[in-house]
Design a protein around this nucleic acid. Structure first.
Lengths: 195, 195, 195, 195
DNA sequence: TATGAATGAGCCTTCATTCAT
DNA sequence: TATGAATGAAGGCTCATTCAT
């Protein structure tokens, strides 16, 4: 990795949690200067403008989350365990995997009415997330873990939506009481489809 | 209502959709000047600072949503119809009841890491929303509509979370395909508990 | 004149010589802050952006020059005296009537390739200037001062062009030697047409 | 020419029309980077700072104009033809010989109040230009083309000034109507001195 | 109550320039 | 000689807020 690429990467790494925590509009380039200890001009050497840095940071946050999630799921062998692992991965939104919580939730909500580019990025990741879930279930059906008539697409949507809603509830509550409820009920639904 | 109260109310009405659409940080006092056609000074006569106006507008948005929801639910008599009506009320997040979509989602996500006051307001409304749902179910159990062992608190949480998640998914998608899936599945769950 | 109009006028008065001296691109809003002792924000209360302030200052400079010129010409009665007075008015470009010299020359040259709006403003004033000259001559012909076959439009153009060229020559020379030559020769041409 | 000299020359060639078109202050080093496709550092290898590059580019522009003019005059044999050729050379300022128009006019006006070095360069070229004209006339007098009492220095000044003024008028007008008037009248003056 | 002029900190961005490689 | 990363001052402009009228 060249010096420039390294610095660019470094800036993204430092900026990503800021945007995910404070929001895009509320994070100033000067906040990123402070976090990186780089000069204002240097930031603009690597990113033509704030929008491009934002786009990179949004991507980075979502990639980080995905990669940590996939890494965690790797420890499980059965489809059911993977689904349970997925649920447990998000068990405490007040102690989020990445600073600021779920980037799809944060950037999706901030961008939906005002930033088409980011909205599309989030939508793509939302779809990938549901695809990941439905693929796990499909696999579980194929190898005889789950009932063959389980509507995996519907369940992927339901589970994903419930988790995102649970993140919201828990974060404004400042505790994960309700996320535990969601976790428990989703596990029950999964168990009911298990052979 | 005195002239002053009237103007104050008017400012809130004009400001509320702006905050709910663009977000708090991205909405400037000048945007509100423009929307109200009032002078800078006039805004500050009625609201000491932006934070206070924001708090009022957040309240207003949530009250508006609640009042429209309750109004809509009033047309239904049975608990089941009320739950179905609740679900149908949120069927299309791309055509939201109030401009910008669900204020609990919007302000909850923007405030969770940065604005304690707003976070608390949202949390209270989130709790009230779940309480409204569990009260409907409890009533349905009491009058013999639903199975007596239905865990109404859990379901209220699940349903609320799933709807909020569905709003996110639909708004970034630009269509309500997935919200229809959520609507259908929640109705099925309700039907399963109906006697 | 309201307070706002007064301040606006004051800003233009202070900004006009700066633009005419340093040029538009080389004059920063901060230069105008310093000259007016006003805050940055205050400047933008009265002018939406630099372009609008520039346009106002360009107009002001040209109006100032015109008004001083007309005022000076008023002391003369005959057409010939007016033409001679016009020439003498511009006799020393190193001691210009308004700071920075002729605004048509300054802003015309700076804008011709880059600023359509200013270019048009200058062109209008250039045309007015030539019209003023040809009107004086025409009047002189009508009252029998000048030969009736004098091509007044051509001479107005020639005289105007020669003066502008003379301003350039004298200002880069730092003395008005060549402007005196121009003055003398134009007077000779006028004398030749005088009856 | 060494590699270094070649690159230096190349930079000047690319920068010269930019400065002559946009002006010195409005042309950034980054504009020149873009035009040359050279790196920031490379520019500073060849030119210590912007001022030095500007000085070279100003010289280059004036040399280019002079050389093209002389080249054009070479096709004529008599003094009168040379003067007519000179006038025709500048007949259309909206289609200038070099991009941006007359560099004496452009840089003279931009520098007169702010950049002593450039002002002197322009003044020297202005003097040379008038010398060129008066030398042609003097030669014409010597070989019996023109009346011996023609004040060649005065006419050189008048003609030069009129052309520069004509350039200004035509460029802000966007057409050469008035330059044609100037051309015609100067030719008449020359004809009147021709034997 | 209402106005809008005034403020100055802070916004994003560009500038000319330096310097290690 | 050439690169491009790094700098920080300065650019135009917007912000929330104050205050005399």
């Amino acid at each position: 990795m060249s010096k420039g690429e390294e610095t660019r990467r470094f800036i993204i790494e430092q900026a990503a949690p800021l945007f995910n925590t404070k929001g895009i509009a509320a994070t100033a380039m000067s906040d990123i200067m402070e976090a990186t200890k780089l000069s204002k001009g240097s930031l603009y050497v690597h990113f033509e403008n704030k929008d491009i840095l934002v786009a990179s940071a949004v991507d980075y946050n979502m990639e980080q989350l995905t990669s940590k999630l996939l890494n965690s799921l790797n420890q499980f062998n059965t489809a059911k365990d993977k689904l349970y692992g997925y649920l447990d991965f998000f068990i405490d939104p007040t102690q989020p995997i990445i600073n600021g919580g779920c980037p799809m939730l944060n950037f999706g909500v901030e961008s939906d009415d005002t930033n088409e580019l980011i909205k599309i990025k989030v939508n793509n990741m939302v779809n990938k997330s549901q695809k990941l879930l439905s693929d796990i279930i499909k696999h579980g059906i194929d190898n005889g873990e789950f009932k063959p008539d389980w509507d995996y697409d519907d369940f992927a949507t339901i589970m994903f939506a419930m988790l995102e809603g649970g993140i919201l509830i828990s974060r404004v509550a400042g505790n994960n009481t309700k996320m535990k409820v969601i976790n428990k009920n989703l596990k029950k639904m999964i168990a009911e489809q298990t052979l």
